[in-house]
Simulated scan of single mutants.
Amino acid sequence: MYRLSNTVVGYLNLLTLLSSIPIIGGALWLARSSATCESALQTPLLAVGFIVLLVSLAGFIGACFNVACALWLYLFSMLVLIAALLCITVFGFAVTGGGNGDQIPGRVYREYHLSDYSAWLRRRISEDGNWRAARACVVGSRACAEVVRWTPIDYLQRDLTPIQVNLRSHLF
């Protein structure tokens, strides 16, 4: 049984080790892009790729070569990663919990208000240094280029994304 479980752990870690290579490659590919949105993703992707690579390598070495120290490191790393993901998830729900948007009668879109979100998120968004990168990303993506040509009737009939609703509230 010991040999079977180590084999399974070894193969799973080999699979995750190999899957970390495209993650790192994708992050390096994003470095070539000059767009603000893509460059903002580069550092987190590199960090995730290298963390997955190192944890998988520890698990693979521990399972395949019976190195107990590497398996303990792998187990502790997985515990820390699971706890971190749980904390990030809870934090994300806590910060964005009230932002469901209000259904407007006669409209196909929802109206979103900054006051629905947590005070921490409102402060982060209102700080000019934090908002500058997000604003550059939205402008650079040309997500709203089509919306500028719409008539007021188009706004009533079309399904709008939250960014387009925000643009609509600034235009009218």
Rank of each mutant, 00 (worst) to 15 (best):
G10S: 11
I23F: 11
F60L: 09
E127N: 10
H113S: 13
W29I: 05
T151F: 03
D116T: 03
A136S: 07
S5T: 12
L53I: 03
L14G: 15
A40I: 08
N166H: 11
I82W: 09
T36M: 12
V139K: 06
L75F: 13
V165Y: 09
Q157T: 15
T16Q: 06
T161P: 01
Y155S: 04
V108H: 15
V138R: 00
P44K: 02
T89L: 11
V90C: 04
G140T: 06
S56T: 04
Y109C: 09
W120E: 12
L18T: 06
R3L: 04
V90A: 14
I21M: 15
D116K: 02
D154T: 07
S34P: 00
L73R: 00
A134Y: 11
S34F: 01
W29E: 14
F76V: 14
L81S: 11
P162D: 04
L53W: 13
I61E: 04
W72E: 12
D116Y: 01
C37A: 12
R124Q: 11
D128P: 00
N13V: 03
G25S: 13
I23Y: 07
G98N: 03
H113K: 10
F172D: 15
T43D: 06
A143W: 12
L14Q: 09
R107L: 02
Y112W: 07
L167Q: 10
D116N: 11
I88H: 07
I82A: 10
Q103N: 00
G10V: 01
F172T: 13
S34K: 11
T16R: 01
R168A: 15
E127W: 07
L54Q: 08
L160I: 09
G92M: 04
S34M: 07
R32T: 13
A136L: 04
L171A: 13
T36S: 09
L17W: 10
D116H: 13
F91Q: 05
G59F: 02
R132E: 14
Q42P: 06
C37E: 12
S20I: 02
N13F: 03
V9G: 02
P105L: 00
A83M: 09
A145M: 04
A68E: 07
L156P: 00
L160R: 07
L54T: 12
T7C: 10
T151K: 12
W120Y: 06
L4C: 08
F50N: 00
C144H: 05
L28A: 15
S118P: 08
S115Q: 09
I24E: 05
Y109V: 00
M78E: 05
I104S: 02
V139A: 06
I88K: 09
L54S: 06
R149G: 05
F76S: 12
G98Y: 01
R110K: 15
V139C: 02
L171V: 13
R149D: 15
R122A: 03
I88S: 14
A70C: 15
P22H: 11
I24P: 12
L18V: 14
L46P: 05
L121W: 03
V9K: 06
A63L: 02
R158G: 03
V139Q: 10
N6K: 07
V52P: 01
N6C: 09
W150Y: 14
G106W: 10
L79F: 15
S34W: 03
L114N: 07
S20C: 05
